[in-house]
Amino acid sequence: MLRKAFMRVFSAHPIETIAACTGLFMIVLGVALGTQHGWVWFWGQVSAVFGASLATLAVVWTVRMRTTETRVAANIDVLARQLETSISQIHKSVKSGRDEQLPPSVYLAQLEQCIDNLIGVSHELGEITGRPMPYDVIEMMTTRHTLQIEAHLAEGKPAPERRLVTETDSCPSCKQTVEFQIGNQPGDSAKPTCEHCGQRFHAHRSTSGSIFLRLPGASQFTRAVSVSCPVCASKIPANIDQAKQHSEARFCFSCGAKVSIDPVSHACTLISKQDKLAGRFDAAGVFHCEKCGEPASVLTSNINGTFGICRKDDALVVLPAAAAQGSPKTDAA
């Protein structure tokens, strides 16, 4: 049994094991020479001290490596579950869309969310393995915009008109206020130049319509995080864009609270506590808020129901799964 345990440790940490064995040998040698006198005794003490130091360093390094391996294994296990969930959701969304069990706007929104999750997980794997992942923010936003156009076409609506608009934000280099032009549709991007410092930077419009900026260089990606709701303590999963300098707002699917998540520290703070609003699908398959009647932006649809955001009431809109089964289906392909 001891031999098997030794071989298992040696195969995992050969250098550390050799160093530890060498240190133990030097300690034994030092103890043996310590029974002598003169220079033999002196070199025996030196051998014992060096042997103890070498053995201690080997043990500390081995424990540190095992801790790192355990932490990396736990991260990979979480990422594997997220990949499994995203892939399963893609299969379910495609099947439900093909069988017309869900309106096009819902299953296309599900695919859009799965793409965000897959890109975030891929970036996490790239950070763990040290290999750059072949994804770019512009490519990600273009894919999102394509899905939104498909949703409009599937619902029989014309795609929104793209035009240039003037936006104002802080330069990511000098932090001075700068004006620039960018398209009005999600996925649009521009590369303006700061009028104060002369630095060129990338500007992108997210799916929610907000603008985020980053300096040229390695692309920043979304990071999958999970924070605790400050009201009900439920877990709030979120894909946080690392290129943003400002906190991002999210809604708790359990209690409906609106929270703010810091993109760096991932600290979660309460913005407002409000009840969830009821939602419904109309005959065309568009998700509406029951309170104001305005269309709601669909976030996701799962076994618990369909979740969206009402921009007018600034609240979470929910249609439970049991109620969704009786909602009308659209005839759009």
Rank of each mutant, 00 (worst) to 15 (best):
D99H: 12
M133L: 03
I138H: 13
A159Q: 09
Y135I: 07
A32C: 10
P186V: 04
G308V: 00
H145W: 13
V59D: 05
A151S: 14
I15W: 14
H145Q: 13
P134G: 08
F281C: 08
A19Y: 11
V9P: 03
G97N: 08
I119C: 14
T17P: 03
V63K: 13
Q325F: 09
L2E: 09
G217E: 04
S93A: 15
V94N: 12
G51Y: 02
H196E: 15
Q148E: 05
A333E: 09
A233L: 11
A283W: 15
F180M: 01
I271D: 04
Q242F: 03
R66A: 12
P103W: 06
P186K: 07
P104E: 02
N304A: 15
F281S: 03
D169E: 12
R8I: 00
A322C: 06
R223S: 05
R214A: 12
I303C: 11
K4Q: 01
L111F: 12
R66F: 10
L108N: 04
D99F: 13
V227A: 10
K191C: 01
L83W: 11
V231D: 15
Q36H: 14
S254L: 08
H13W: 11
A55T: 02
R214T: 09
S47D: 05
R3M: 01
N302V: 04
S53I: 08
H91I: 03
I240K: 14
C171S: 12
N304C: 11
S272F: 00
E150F: 15
A257L: 03
G34R: 02
H266K: 06
D169G: 04
K95N: 06
F251T: 00
F251P: 04
S189L: 00
P158R: 08
E100R: 13
W61S: 14
L213Q: 02
G308C: 05
T85I: 08
M7N: 07
K276C: 04
A109F: 03
K4W: 01
C114A: 14
Q36A: 11
I240W: 06
V46W: 06
P160C: 01
A322E: 13
S219A: 13
I18S: 11
F212D: 01
V286P: 10
K276E: 05
A333V: 03
K175D: 09
K276T: 02
L147D: 02
W43P: 00
L277G: 07
H152C: 05
V40Y: 10
A52R: 00
L102F: 01
S210N: 06
L316W: 10
G51N: 01
C229W: 02
R223A: 05
T168E: 12
E84G: 09
D188G: 01
V31G: 06
K157S: 02
V94T: 13
V9I: 10
T35C: 12
F50C: 05
T177R: 15
Q245T: 05
G326H: 07
R214I: 02
T142P: 10
L79Q: 08
A284D: 13
G38K: 05
D99M: 03
F6Q: 04
H91N: 10
D275G: 12
V60C: 15
G326E: 04
A55M: 07
C194L: 08
T22A: 13
T143Q: 15
L319T: 01
G156I: 00
Y107S: 01
C171I: 09
Q274C: 07
V178T: 06
D77M: 07
K276V: 01
